[in-house]
């Protein structure tokens, strides 16, 4: 299976899809909403990292996303790992 192109847009769109599959209300998600308010906990973030890893081949692990408290912070951590 071809690896989807690694752009910030494609990663962000994918991350939104994953959060929705994890049961997070899509219309509540904004870049700066806190994960606490959204009900996103550390295990969701870990699962998110695994999904990004599989989809884009970006080696992002639980430890890389440990400090992320919002979608913007998580995306920035992923972009940094991917060199985006």
């Amino acid at each position: 299976m071809a690896v989807p192109s690694r752009t910030k847009e494609s990663v962000e769109g994918f991350v939104l899809d994953v959060l929705e599959k994890l049961g997070i209300e899509r219309d509540q998600i904004t870049l700066d909403a806190s994960f606490d308010d959204l009900g996103v906990d550390s295990l969701h973030v870990t699962e998110l990292g695994q999904a990004v890893n599989r989809e884009f081949g970006i080696e992002v692990h639980a430890a890389d996303l440990e400090e992320s408290q919002s979608l913007r912070q998580a995306l920035n951590a992923i972009y940094a790992k991917a060199g985006l």
Partner: peptide
């Protein structure tokens, strides 16, 4: 725990 979670799922 968190690293176990990651490995366990994979």
């Amino acid at each position: 725990g968190r690293e176990i979670f990651e490995s366990a799922v994979d």
